[in-house]
């Protein structure tokens, strides 16, 4: 009986913790963020700042990255907009890998959002006028989860399809190289 009581205690503690976490991870985002112009204008893809100006303040972690629902939507959209055709399930192919730590144009959600919308010169198409902004944010959040840059609680736990790699939730966090620093800085 004693062990049963302990078990119940532990379970309820876990349950309470899960509820607390679940509160934000299950949020649906009904109010969309302001237009992306602001984001695009604040995104920088060079770490060189003439005149020793400091790096601009990184954009705050956006709400899509805290919502398991948004990340899961991002995962679906990643398949549906054929991102998977070039970047595979993060390992790359026609396009570069997304699950490693090498970020050509920056690892922040704003960088990835800008990459999706504007395209990049060496083959990344511009999805402007094809992908609505909120979906681009969801995809950006999912892309970050591929290299373990989102909390495990919001990252997809198991693949929906043929298992070709560890799930995003079990991918060890990579330390991004490039201009946007490590994830700890802004989260």
């Amino acid at each position: 009986m004693r062990s049963n009581f302990q078990l119940a205690l532990v379970l309820s503690a876990f349950g309470a913790a899960a509820l607390l976490v679940a509160c934000s991870r299950e949020d649906r985002i009904l109010r969309q963020p302001p237009p992306a112009n602001q984001t695009i204008n604040s995104v920088q893809v060079s770490g060189l700042n003439p005149g020793a100006n400091s790096m601009p303040t990184p954009p705050p972690s956006n709400m899509y990255q805290e919502s398991a629902y948004a990340v899961s939507e991002g995962q679906k959209l990643y398949e549906q907009y054929n991102c998977v055709g070039c970047h595979a399930h993060g390992g790359g192919g026609i396009g570069p890998p997304l699950m490693d730590n090498n970020w050509i144009y920056g690892s922040e959600a704003g960088n990835i959002f800008t990459t999706i919308m504007q395209g990049r010169p060496n083959g990344m198409p511009s999805f402007r006028n094809r992908v609505p902004e909120y979906q681009a944010w969801e995809i950006a959040a999912y892309v970050r989860s591929m290299s373990g840059l989102l909390p495990k609680g919001v990252s997809p736990g198991r693949p929906d399809h043929m298992s070709v790699k560890p799930s995003e939730a079990s991918t060890p966090p990579q330390t991004p190289t490039g201009i946007t620093g490590s994830p700890e800085q802004h989260q």
Binding site: A88, G90, G91, G92, P96, P97, M99, D100, M162, K165
Partner: peptide
């Protein structure tokens, strides 16, 4: 292409 083979589906498998 510097692909990441932890994803076995990289380069169309």
């Amino acid at each position: 292409g510097g692909l990441d083979p932890r994803d076995e589906s990289a380069a169309l498998g």
